[in-house]
Nucleic acid binder design. Sequence first.
DNA 1: CCCCGATTCTTTACACCGTAAAGACTGAAG
DNA 2: CTTCAGTCTTTACGGTGTAAAGAATCGGGG
Lengths: 195, 195
Amino acid sequence: MTMKPAPSPKSPYHHGGLPAALLQSARHLLEKRGIGALGLRAITRHAGVSATAAAPHFGNLTGLLSTLAATGYDELADAMEAARTHGPRTVGLAYVHFALANPGLFTLMFRSDAIDRDHGQLARASARAFSCLAALADGGRAGPPGASSRAAVMAGLWGKVHGLAVLATDGLLSPLVGTKDGPATLDALVAAALR
Amino acid sequence: MTMKPAPSPKSPYHHGGLPAALLQSARHLLEKRGIGALGLRAITRHAGVSATAAAPHFGNLTGLLSTLAATGYDELADAMEAARTHGPRTVGLAYVHFALANPGLFTLMFRSDAIDRDHGQLARASARAFSCLAALADGGRAGPPGASSRAAVMAGLWGKVHGLAVLATDGLLSPLVGTKDGPATLDALVAAALR
DNA sequence: CCCCGATTCTTTACACCGTAAAGACTGAAG
DNA sequence: CTTCAGTCTTTACGGTGTAAAGAATCGGGG
């Protein structure tokens, strides 16, 4: 086996880590200039390669963005699993915190017209993230008095958490912070709403 | 005052109701072919005018889409106000029902990178729709034992309703219907989750 | 060692997009 | 009748995603 030769930045051919570099450039543009700046030409330009250099690795723009969204779902699942050790109530907070920490990526992960939900890597990663929520819903289900179906409590929990995340990242919750007798920060508002 | 001459479809100039016709074409394309098909050229082509005919009325594509989104917020506010007479609990259902009945329009209404939230007509209409939810949150607030702040119950209610609407229109809730002992239809799932 | 196929990356080209600019046409007011 | 403001068309420009063909490089089998 040959040691990886620490990609020399001078050679124009065989970049060495182009896929990772493109994903990094895409994520950088996504968070710095918004989702509207996520063009194939902008990404490749930022990575210093020609406009069609992504095709051998990702096929087309949708493939690249789907792979990027997959890494987002992986990170989200990791965050939720880590939060589960701090008690089940904190995993909803972890969901919203991930969205607020990576607003562009979170938005991309739910842009069904920009990504391909059948993309292998993306399908696997999103299934893992969603199963975290399902496990949480099962755990939080009380005895038989409520008698809500598994699907209903899952939808209710996911809906509330996801809605708060979407509204918060879109800035639509900001008018509610700082109001009289209300929470002073977005985090506090979300935490209070999740009770 | 002169009677409006019932726009003759033969004269190429002075269409008569171009703004309304363009909005109708846009909405048609939006629901039939998805939000990705909402291009200025596609809309004007469908309306039978040249590609730049929308500029005098809407300025640019963002202006047209913002106006379309404004009509969506108006319809949503109407639906919620109508539902309020059937008891406060049904207005959340009205929110989700509107999203499911007009998935493309609902998606557009929250695409902050495709519309201009400062657009006059849009800002007015969305403020009206959001104030309906605020009123609902105020009405549903129980006595002092809960002691949740106004902002917190507003965020919780809006978040849950909006999250269910978004997940449902994106098809992410469909895998939950028809499961063992679960609701058989999307509507039933949403209604159960909103309890 | 050499060569050859597979892979990576570049250049070129094409169709499409949003929209700025300038011209043709129309309705109405003076 | 004249004029003017508003409407719609044509043309043109820079931008996009990506298909196609060529140059450069790597890896493995003679």
